[in-house]
Design a protein around this nucleic acid. Sequence first.
DNA 1: GTTTGTACAAACTTTTAGAAAGTGCAACCC
DNA 2: GGGTTGCACTTTCTAAAAGTTTGTACAAAC
Lengths: 122, 122
Amino acid sequence: MEEQFLFDVFAQRCPSRATLEHLTGKWGTLAMVALHEGTFRFNQLRRRVDGVSEKMLAQTLQALERDGFVHREAQATIPPKVEYSLTERGRHTAELLIGLIQDVESQMPDVMAARERYDAAR
Amino acid sequence: MEEQFLFDVFAQRCPSRATLEHLTGKWGTLAMVALHEGTFRFNQLRRRVDGVSEKMLAQTLQALERDGFVHREAQATIPPKVEYSLTERGRHTAELLIGLIQDVESQMPDVMAARERYDAAR
DNA sequence: GTTTGTACAAACTTTTAGAAAGTGCAACCC
DNA sequence: GGGTTGCACTTTCTAAAAGTTTGTACAAAC
């Protein structure tokens, strides 16, 4: 009998942990979910993901591209034109992230109430 | 016609973004998923979540407790005994995170292959 | 001709994460 | 009885990450 997967996010050195962090990191989730809405150019995406710096967006997209969630299509024109979209694998995973976001957004009234209770108790 | 939810993670100042980060941050996801397996004491959880520092685990659990995903039960004995578990809301959200983790783990062979292709191309 | 936009990279600064040590006592080892 | 270990953290210090700013090479709009 063998394990179904050889990867375990609970193990510090498992490569799956890095991949999980690319997806769930502060900007990874937002980039994935934004790209699920369609194809975006770099600065377009930057405006969609409110608050992200150029550096972090570039870094995030590179990691997601390397892991095969995001597809990057560049035209060597001046000014440059680069289009980002999800791969098929990316689209699949993005749907899980969308589910999570919707869940969080719908729970927010309860979350706010819980915070008030917590802060009141100390 | 009104929006279904008043919260939007794409807006920088929306409180839902902070909550999302507590759940999806490097340690938030792992803590939530670990706690879905049952009740844990602090150091037990620390051993389960390989690589987390005491400071970050304490901080992560406090944020999750404040948001109402985690329940903390402390006995004022010496030595202290503190038990952490998920609330009902927490259990529900943890299941989404487990789905995500399983998805990532099962995709890892493809991810590794994508990385090799990416690194080979530059 | 000055500003604006493009998609970044590099240098520098600020914020955050992680490592180490302290707490106050009790239970175990020898 | 003396030293070590474990408990659940907090505080202090340092290393790493995030964020800000500047530069690029041009082209189109004002």
